[in-house]
Design a protein around this nucleic acid. Structure first.
Lengths: 200, 200
DNA sequence: CGTTAGTTTTACCAGTTGGTCAAATTAATT
DNA sequence: AATTAATTTGACCAACTGGTAAAACTAACG
């Protein structure tokens, strides 16, 4: 498709996406303005629209990238690996993404809370399928006696909920625990929880 | 303070708050408009501003009510009760609120994700204090050998994260599990999880 | 250097936004 | 019924919104 991206295009595309991420993650799609993104990126508003056809185009580019990045680690789970370790690797990876890319997490949270108007088809399609496969795998592990019998879907939800909580509700976490990085403690808690849930 | 509220005031105040809740929960503060709230409530825009001085006033009234409702069940935890049961009662209550009042949950989530600009002082004040008290209580229970030794703060976060997940990320839950009510399964999972975490 | 392709800016627009104001209407009280 | 208080409406406004058009500028390339 698109091969030749000039160096200026490259630079500005990523500058706009970086600015868009920052703004959209905080205010959601409707609450964000092109002027904000313009100010944040250092480009003028018409210049932004020279690189992206609309405000929505920026938002959708960000969402598409996000979904790809989030589903990959699920696909990477090895059915032949040690069940507890595989799930722990996934959970740790998810938590690390909350630590390193909290804005992406908040962007996604905003989209879902608002009813996922732009990605509902992905949720009921690709996401649902990938998670169904993972759930089946977990069920197989259960039936093979490798892990405890457990509802695979709610297990997955609990991992998502807890890992994303530290990104999405960061302000609240900081308010309660004091400023600083609490991801190491969170990881320890999460790991402890998962081991208890998965082993007999 | 305010004693005499006419029947019309009563009706319209609550109609506006109900409409505001619906709109704000979906679009966040900045993404919502008075026109939307007007349409939703069946009142005209100037009429809304006759009852609330500004868009922000509606939003703040909703948030204030919310925080009160959310902190009360924490205060209701009985230090003399059975530790595991007390925590389970709280968790079930929280989950029930997600089931019955998902919009309130989403409104709160929106506010926190956006950096809690209007309630940060409550978070670092009242919320922090109430949770510190609860954390100390849990720690005491641990030291008395009544429950397992556990990080009280991350225990609380895990309860919040999981219960609110089913309200805030409802669209995703429905996409993955199919339409329908999944709160009973969620409650069972949550209860199982907490018992495993709290007992030796 | 000259030409072309790529980039940026200036000026602008129509629609929407939160909010105001005075007039009109309706409800409550005497 | 008359008066007063409470409520609702219509017309309006300045600021902001996403987006456009064309001119001005800059980089790349032969």
């Amino acid at each position: 498709m698109k091969k030749t991206e000039t160096r200026i295009q490259k630079k500005n595309h990523s500058a706009i996406k970086a600015a868009g991420l920052k703004v959209f993650a905080q205010f959601g799609f409707r609450g964000s303005t092109l002027d904000q993104i313009a100010a944040e990126s250092g480009l003028s508003k018409p210049n932004i629209l020279y690189y992206f056809s609309s405000k929505e185009a920026i938002y959708e580019a960000l969402l598409a990238q996000l979904l790809t990045d989030w589903l990959q680690p699920v696909r990477d789970i090895d059915p032949a690996g040690d069940p507890v370790e595989e799930i722990l690797i996934y959970a740790r990876h998810k938590l690390k993404m909350s630590r390193l890319y909290p804005r992406e997490s908040r962007l996604y949270a905003n989209e879902i809370i608002q009813g996922a108007p732009r990605i509902k088809s992905v949720l009921t399609g690709e996401l649902r399928d990938v998670i169904a496969t993972l759930a089946q795998l977990i069920k197989n592990w259960s039936e093979a006696g490798l892990i405890r019998v457990i509802d695979p879907y709610h297990l997955i939800f609990s991992i998502w909920a807890m890992t994303q909580h530290y990104a999405d509700f960061d302000v609240q976490v900081q308010a309660v625990l004091g400023d600083g990085d609490h991801f190491d403690d969170a990881e320890q808690y999460l790991e402890d929880m998962l081991r208890r849930m998965l082993t007999v």
